[in-house]
Design a protein around this nucleic acid. Structure first.
Length: 504
DNA sequence: TGAAATGTTGGGGCG
DNA sequence: ACGCCCCAACATTTC
């Protein structure tokens, strides 16, 4: 059957993808269709767009700034809204080059989309699968509304290479351990799974028209952020630039990806999140490429599919520990400690640098996400859900499945999580992965004059040398909020008594 | 995608 | 020369 879990089609022009010839319009099943863009803000290699163009004579496009989401955002300067706004602008410009207008609307998507479909006389709405529980409920609502006026919602796999039940164990169940999942994923992978949808070939099906006025960022009730100052490339073109640059250094990825002060990673996560680049394009480049760099990077892309799958099969992970014995660890959740962590003043330089990077830019290096998460849970004894929520609020690339998976991994509450007795030492991690303190100095300028030998643990700088450096611990930079060795012992007790006792 | 505690080994100082 | 001790370096176990 056709890719993307599309329901079996009966239209006469249906053929096995990819298709060599453009269908004649009299073989199409719909006169008019509407493509609803969501987290897939691009025109190339787009499943829903491709199917709509093939199946309808006249295709309209829309994007909705969903007020149900926007209204719940805690502040009016949100880099993600701005990122999406830029992406929608570029999407509109690209569609316009094909003579197709993009309708950019603002409102409750579950009402706006059925309303727009009625207004346009669209018989079908096309969109890509979104796996978040709230999105699933929204899409079910939209489908129901459309049905009431004899319309239909078609949705497709687009964000993932394999979704839902496509990769299963021998027993037919979902994988809950990454390594065997990855093995099965790789064994199943064929070029077919990462071949781009040739959208441009069918562009004759776009409904022509004037480009309607689009809302400015301010019209949405949001203010500019420092997003553009940060030189974060936005939109499809920004994603392509990052990808091109990353491919130049992918060979060193395996080593360089661990060092936050080094440009080692791809920085594509936010683009994958909003679909300004296609996962198929990335896998198409990485899968056939030899060497440990491409292999390791592909692994990271597989983690993404893995966590989509976990959320799909175990939706209770949203809000609950995957491992029930660790549901309630009885942490103190000291508000002072939590605030110190949020604000980057725990007294542990690498943790603080990481949190300040997040606060200033909306980005945090992946290793630092692990270090910061481990510290919150296993040093400060704050519930992982508080950290998860803070990241959700701040990360430009925030994705429910991946963020939840990452936090439960760090907290040892998840499926295939790190063992509970595995506890990062924030000083050792700092010495290993920021040996010269370059990253620390970037975000914790009050430590810029501390010698390398002490920058990972500035409280060990002898008083005389503090004087010489014009620095006083406790005055210019906080003393550690907790003692790691003590906190570690307590963590071991907590997890052991919570039922971790009989673990290997 | 760990770190700390504990165990083992072997070189060198030294009586 | 030899045994003994110290301890660094490495390995293994434990959390």
């Amino acid at each position: 059957m056709a890719r993307g879990h599309a329901k079996p089609r009966t239209s006469p022009g249906r053929s096995k993808y990819p298709v060599a010839s453009v269908q004649a319009s009299d073989t199409k099943r719909y006169k008019t269709a509407l493509v609803w863009f969501r987290r897939d803000l691009r025109i190339h290699d787009h499943a829903a767009l491709h199917h709509a163009l093939r199946e309808a004579q006249s295709v309209h496009c829309a994007f909705v700034f969903d007020t149900e989401i926007l209204d719940r955002l805690p502040n009016r300067e949100d880099r993600r809204v701005e990122f999406i706004w830029h992406a929608a602008e570029e999407l509109a410009a690209s569609l316009e080059a094909w003579g197709a207008p993009l309708r950019v609307l603002c409102g409750r998507a579950r009402e706006v989309i059925p309303g727009l479909a009625r207004e346009l006389g669209a018989e079908a709405v096309y969109a890509n699968h979104d796996y978040e529980p709230a999105a699933i409920r929204r899409d079910a609502d939209v489908a129901r509304s459309l049905e009431q006026s004899a319309r239909v919602l078609h949705t497709y796999k687009d964000q993932a290479i394999f979704e839902k039940d496509e990769v299963l164990t021998q027993a037919g169940g979902p994988f809950t351990v990454f390594t065997p999942y990855k093995r099965a994923w790789l064994a199943k992978l064929r070029p077919f799974h990462y071949t781009a949808y040739p959208v441009a070939k069918y562009r004759a099906s776009f409904a022509a028209g004037q480009c309607p006025r689009r809302p400015a960022l301010e019209d949405l009730g949001f203010r500019r952020t420092n997003l553009t100052d940060m030189k974060l490339p936005t939109g499809m073109s920004g994603a392509q630039r990052l990808f091109r640059e990353f491919l130049e250094r992918i060979d060193g990825y395996q080593e360089r990806r661990n060092f936050p002060a080094v440009r080692g990673v791809s920085y594509l996560s936010v683009h994958l999140r909003f679909g300004t680049i296609s996962i198929r394009e990335l896998v198409a480049a990485a899968a056939p490429m030899p060497g440990p760099g491409a292999e390791t990077w592909l692994s990271e892309l597989i983690w993404r599919d893995f966590y989509f799958g976990i959320l799909h099969h175990y939706p209770h992970v949203e809000g609950h520990a995957f491992r029930r014995e660790f549901e309630n660890l009885g942490f103190e959740n000291d508000p002072g400690h939590f605030t110190a962590w949020c604000e980057g003043r725990t007294g542990y330089p690498l943790v603080d640098a990481a949190m300040r990077q997040l606060n200033q830019s909306g980005y945090m290096h992946n290793r630092l996400r692990m270090v910061a998460a481990s510290f919150l849970v296993k040093d400060l004894h704050v519930d992982w859900r508080l950290g998860e929520a803070y990241f959700a609020e701040r990360l430009n690339d925030f994705d429910l499945a991946a963020n939840n998976g990452g936090w439960q991994w760090s907290a040892s509450t998840g499926c295939d999580a790190q063992p509970w007795f595995r506890i990062f030492n924030p000083v050792t991690q700092s010495e290993k992965f920021d040996p010269g303190g370059r990253f620390i100095r970037l975000y914790v300028p009050e430590l810029s004059n501390i010698p390398d030998a002490f920058i990972h643990a500035p409280w060990t700088l002898p008083p005389l040398e503090q004087q010489a450096a014009g620095f006083a611990i406790g005055r210019d930079y906080p003393l550690p909020v907790v003692d790691h060795a003590t906190a570690r012992q307590r963590t071991l007790e907590i997890y052991k008594s919570a039922g971790g006792g009989d673990e290997e």
